[in-house]
């Protein structure tokens, strides 16, 4: 495979571009192949173990049984997935915005920066389990706000910490250069601090994107409006419909992957200087 692509690249008159493209697609194949092999192999081993070992479905259903349920409930999974996805997305955007703005403020004012890190750490230590029921009681039972608030709080910390680190790490040479251009204040922030912090912001967002989905699913275990994946997982499990519960878990898993992939894609788009 490697040699074949090399030959194509060598034969191509637009060699530099072609080599770049060849590398990229080769990288993609190389990047996708091992997890695919491991994934398919793992599923096969799982299926065999359950079938041959006669494992009880409440311990572990076979992948084929989960898939059957997934297919049967596909429209419900889609609907509830959309609801959970909307909660995760709104919470993610709100939490990330607040996290970025708070980091900008904390990096601007020294005192605020010193105070904010322990506060943020305390906020991060807040168990979502303790928070969800309280928030659910604070709002109407038809409100989506409690779950979204939970997501925002969970998202805030990684975004805040990473962004703050990025904003603080200013190359001293860059600072002196901008001084020599008589640029200060907002110009400096706009041209140096923010672009310099962008890779850090996206590191935070990538971590936050998976957390957002997890938080949106788990928040539903504790009451509130029951229109998402989380509520279906609990109700299926309490009805001993284990393969169906697992089917919804798979749905949550896919949703998490979608969020992560979108975050990764946005990162590539926003920081082109790093992916070349």
């Amino acid at each position: 495979m490697t040699t074949a692509i090399d030959k194509i690249a060598a034969a191509d008159p637009t060699a530099p571009v072609a080599v770049g493209r060849g590398r990229r697609s080769r990288g993609l194949v190389r990047g996708l192949l091992p997890p695919l092999v491991v994934g398919v192999g793992g599923l096969a081993v799982w299926e065999l173990t359950v079938k041959v070992g006669k494992v009880a479905p409440f311990i572990l259903p076979a992948p084929s049984a989960i898939w059957e349920q997934f297919w049967l409930s596909r429209s419900v999974i889609w609907q509830t997935g959309l609801a959970t996805g909307a909660n995760a997305l709104v919470g993610l955007i709100a939490g990330a915005l607040v996290g970025i703005l708070a980091a900008m403020a904390a990096s601007r004012f020294r005192l605020l920066g010193e105070v904010s890190i322990p506060v943020a750490a305390a906020l991060n230590a807040l168990p979502i389990i303790a928070l969800a029921p309280i928030l659910n009681n604070m709002f109407d039972s038809t409100s989506s706000i409690p779950r979204r608030v939970v997501v925002s709080i969970v998202v805030f910390f990684p975004v805040f910490i990473n962004t703050l680190r990025g904003l603080r790490e200013v190359d001293p040479t860059h600072r002196e250069l901008m001084d020599s251009y008589a640029a200060s204040g907002w110009t400096f922030t706009r041209l140096v601090r923010l672009p310099g912090a962008l890779p850090f912001v996206f590191t935070g967002l990538r971590q936050a994107s998976s957390l957002a989905v997890i938080a949106a699913v788990v928040a539903e275990y504790f009451g509130g409006l029951q229109d998402g994946l989380g509520s279906r997982i609990t109700s299926a499990a309490s009805n001993t419909a284990y393969p169906r519960a697992w089917a919804f878990v798979v749905g949550a898993c896919v949703l998490g992957l979608v969020f992560y992939a979108v975050a990764l894609g946005l990162e590539r788009l926003a920081t082109p200087w790093r992916s070349r």
Binding site: T173, A182, P195, L198
Partner: peptide, 29 residues
């Protein structure tokens, strides 16, 4: 003189802005 940008300065480290292309780096001042 600094506010009037009477001088150009180059440090021991190139100090380029890695998120700007070469052209946009030179354009910055």
């Amino acid at each position: 003189a600094r506010l009037d940008q009477e001088y150009g300065i180059a440090f021991q480290q190139a100090g380029l802005f890695e998120w700007r292309t070469v052209l946009r780096n030179v354009e910055l001042p």
